[in-house]
């Protein structure tokens, strides 16, 4: 019945689109999320969320037209099957086979995210794509050139006009469309969510894992988004000159601080850390229990009795991993709404 209804609506929407091209889609298309999620940080503002705007953003996300030589799209390094992280590679490949020095982060629940990138340097979802688009080892393109390429493309030209009105394409429209798509990437249907909603129960190990998680991990990886969006020094050995947040603030106290990533879909998004140095969750848990090196600004939450490290027994780790597996959202990674 429901699927019939959806099909009917889609059919209707299709006819609607063909019959009156100038009308925007005013149907109840919007950001939906569970009641235990906080209010999203991004409220769209002047960027009115519409189905057509979202779909335009989706088309741009999957289109290598955003790169200088039409080889790299956003999706090249942000793959839906990996919760929009890269295909399990530490460092992604950009134009001309170039690589940067950071791991491509997963992308979901971005409407809740106050700052972007591993170093927190970007302060708004709308201007976030400017970094990969213009970075010379990623997409290496210029916003004016993209606007001109899109204007010359009859299909895009028409779509931009339908979403933003009859005016020349400029970067704001590209950023708005991408922000609509990115904001809609809500991951909230993992086993953990169904447990929160009383639809499913956790196994004994998963339940124990959740308790351990709440005791030892949740002060940074705060539920229900599994991050508090802070930037912290988590005791990684310094392997290159990446100062993280310190590069942004130039403060000694912010050196080697990186954004706390969400642990939703964590099993799907290996390798881990800002540079993808750990291949497995075991390596990550070993790092936190016995592998951290001391920094003057090592996060105090990661210290036990004045020493770096969180006490985790082997059994704790097994149970934690069982729980972390409940954060994989298979509905999200297979949702056709987000696909090319």
């Amino acid at each position: 019945m429901i699927s019939y209804k959806i099909r009917f609506l889609l059919f209707f929407a299709l006819i609607w689109n063909f019959s009156c091209q100038d009308d925007r889609d005013k149907s109840d298309f919007g950001l939906t999320y569970p009641d235990y999620f906080p209010t999203p940080h991004y409220q769209f503002g002047k960027n009115t969320l519409t189905r057509e705007g979202f779909e335009l953003g989706r088309a741009l996300f999957f289109d290598p037209i955003l790169s200088v030589d039409s080889t790299i799209s956003c999706a090249s390094c942000h793959s839906q099957g990996h919760a929009f992280a890269d295909h399990n590679t530490a460092l992604s490949t950009g134009i001309l086979g170039k690589t940067g020095n950071r791991n491509s982060p997963a992308m979901f629940n971005l409407a809740w995210q106050p700052v972007f990138m591993w170093d927190g340097g970007i302060n708004h979802i709308e201007v976030m794509p400017l970094a990969p688009i213009t970075n010379e080892v990623e997409m290496g393109e210029d916003m004016l050139k993209i606007a001109s390429k899109l204007s010359r493309n009859p299909s895009y030209s028409k779509r931009f006009q339908r979403v933003f009105g009859e005016k020349p394409i400029e970067s704001q429209q590209i950023f708005y469309a991408l922000a609509q798509y990115m904001s809609m990437l809500v991951s909230a249907d993992a086993k953990y969510d169904r447990y929160r909603q009383g639809k499913e129960s956790l196994s004994a190990d998963e339940q124990d894992g959740l308790q351990i998680f709440r005791n030892k991990c949740a002060s940074c990886h705060t539920e229900p988004l599994f991050t508090d969006f802070s930037l912290r020094n988590n005791g990684l050995e310094v392997l290159n000159d990446d100062l993280g947040f310190g590069r942004i603030t130039l403060e000694e106290a912010d050196k080697y601080k990186f954004k706390v990533p969400s642990l939703r879909n964590v099993v799907l998004t290996y390798p881990y850390m800002h540079d993808g140095r750990f291949r497995t969750l075991d390596q990550v848990l070993d790092h936190y229990s016995k592998g951290m090196v001391h920094h003057n600004n090592l996060d105090p939450l990661l210290m036990t009795n004045g020493q770096p490290g969180i006490l985790l027994t082997h059994t704790d780790k097994v149970k934690l991993k069982a729980f972390l597996n409940t954060l994989s959202d298979y509905t999200f990674i297979s949702n056709p709404l987000f696909s090319e």
Binding site: M117, G121, V127, L130, A131, I133, N135, M143, A147, S171
Partner: peptide
């Protein structure tokens, strides 16, 4: 407009 080249991409 950031396309004017007067906006830092990496450090808003």
């Amino acid at each position: 407009d950031p396309a004017k080249g007067m906006f830092w991409s990496w450090n808003s």
